[in-house]
Simulated scan of single mutants.
Amino acid sequence: MYLAKIKVTYKPSVLDPQGEVIKSALHRLDYETVEQVVQGKYFEVKLTASDLEDAKQLIESMAEALLINQNTETYDYTVEEVEG
């Protein structure tokens, strides 16, 4: 069994509206040193696969099919073997 941890964020060329709102709110709270806030999504997926490479292929397929908007978002992930 494998556990994938997937982090989804906007592509660098896309404005992150929620991140901008959070940054503005932090500035209003006198956290003026905040330069940037990146807001995203986080998923943990447990799955069964024949090996680590198979697990990675499945995660990439899932992410691109459902978890991200390929036009505006990108993702990064780690996969580790865990006990069922």
Score class of each variant (00 low, 15 high):
Tyr2His: 05
Gln39Phe: 13
Ile22Met: 02
Phe43Ala: 09
Tyr42Cys: 07
Ala63Asn: 00
Val8Ile: 09
Gly40Arg: 03
Leu67Phe: 07
Lys7His: 07
Glu81Trp: 07
Val45Pro: 08
Phe43His: 00
Arg28Val: 02
Lys41Gln: 06
Pro12Ser: 02
Val14Glu: 01
Ile6Arg: 02
Glu83Cys: 14
Ala25Cys: 03
Lys11Glu: 02
Ile68Asn: 01
Leu15Asp: 01
Glu73Cys: 08
Lys7Asp: 08
Arg28Tyr: 01
Glu32His: 13
Leu67Met: 10
Met1Glu: 13
Asp54Cys: 13
Asp54Gln: 09
Leu52Gly: 06
Tyr42Thr: 09
Glu81Ala: 13
Glu64Leu: 05
Val45Arg: 03
Glu73Thr: 04
Ala25Glu: 05
Leu47His: 03
Thr48Ser: 15
Asp51Arg: 06
Val82Arg: 06
Pro17Asp: 03
Ala55Tyr: 04
Tyr42Trp: 05
Val45Phe: 12
Tyr31Phe: 12
Asp76Trp: 08
Pro17Gln: 02
Thr72Cys: 10
Glu81Gln: 14
Leu52Tyr: 13
Thr48Arg: 12
Glu73Ala: 07
Val82Phe: 13
Leu29Cys: 05
Leu26Ile: 00
Glu35Lys: 14
Ala55Asp: 03
Ala65Cys: 10
Leu15Thr: 08
Gln57Asp: 13
Thr72His: 05
Leu52Asp: 08
Asn71Cys: 13
Glu73Ile: 08
Glu81Tyr: 14
Lys46Ala: 15
Met1Phe: 11
Ser24Gln: 11
Tyr2Met: 03
Val21Asp: 04
Ser61Lys: 15
Glu32Lys: 13
Glu83Ile: 11
Tyr31Ala: 08
Leu67Asp: 04
His27Leu: 00
Val45His: 03
Gly19Leu: 03
